[in-house]
Design a protein around this nucleic acid. Structure first.
Lengths: 159, 159
DNA sequence: CTGCCACCTCAAGTCAACTTGAGGTCAAGC
DNA sequence: GCTTGACCTCAAGTTGACTTGAGGTGGCAG
């Protein structure tokens, strides 16, 4: 496949060009040259960007993701790191499940005010102790999906 | 119970004094007066702070939480809002579960490199399409729990 | 009465991951 | 050859929830 410029890569991945420039600046992707001012990317960066997206979705920071690539560019993903993250997520799922059930109860509870519902008050108490944590912000409800890439001829990211 | 000043409230709730000031500035809590410079709080703000903590844990923003109190200070929580948030969380749980299972597989997978594991590549593809989303940041792994309040000797609050 | 120091105010800084904007450049089409 | 405009650079802005820091004040122990 032919090398890609920023606009083509943006179209293929759905990422804004500004993000691609930012990722390059951070060293997450590498351009292999220029045509005039325009960056040229090897088609393999599409895969790399998928991997970055996966890392982000798993909750890794960009810096952590950067550490998952060997200097030669090959992904070197520590299996222990994955296991640890899986356990992290598992704990999060537990917290969220408790939260979801508590909210559902509170929504259906017939107590005149929430403050009189024992379940709700128990939930409040746990939250106050930090037992449900809110490290930065819950995920949830993005208003919109990114613009679907792959205009007419459906160029696929998979090789 | 006697009225509380900022330091006492901080000790009771485990929240830093700066956070309490910030919450007051945002209108989330109200001080009922001053003794000299010091704010005085009604003991009921402890409950209110628990409610705020619960809201945060559920993923509501401070502004949203602010909207859950009637002008008279009574919580007026919309049950539909709770249901909606519960569904939000439920969707998040679904995404996280897929993520966790995918990571676990990848951690155990015997393919020589992750890029050769079909499961891993499928996960990558879904992430690249935004199917797993990462609205801001996954929760997960806070380094430490907040200082347990109620301790006799540890009275740390302001800088 | 004096001094201490916990608490105050207000502005600015932090963090992460980007986005935005002003101003510049150059390959390509006419 | 000249215009066009997509892409470039670099600095600064955004968001949310706080924290930090400099400089001020007043209740209370001595």
């Amino acid at each position: 496949m032919k090398d890609l410029d920023t606009a083509e890569l943006a179209r293929l991945t759905g990422l804004p060009a500004s993000t691609l420039r930012y990722y390059e600046e951070k060293g997450l992707i590498v351009s292999i040259g220029r045509r005039g001012l325009k960056r040229l990317f090897d088609p393999s960066v599409v895969d790399r960007l998928s991997l970055i997206a996966l890392g982000r979705a798993a909750g890794f920071s960009l810096d952590e993701i950067g550490g998952m690539f060997a200097p030669d560019g090959e992904p070197r993903i520590d299996r222990d790191q994955l296991t640890e993250k899986a356990e992290d997520i598992d704990r999060t799922i537990g917290r969220l499940t408790a939260m979801r059930d508590g909210l559902r109860h509170a929504a259906e509870c017939r107590a005149p005010t929430h403050m009189e519902c024992p379940t709700f008050r128990r939930l409040m108490r746990v939250a106050a102790r930090g037992g449900l944590g809110h490290p930065r912000q819950m995920p949830q409800s993005r208003p919109e999906l990114p613009p679907l890439r792959g205009g007419a001829s459906t160029a696929r990211a998979d090789s």
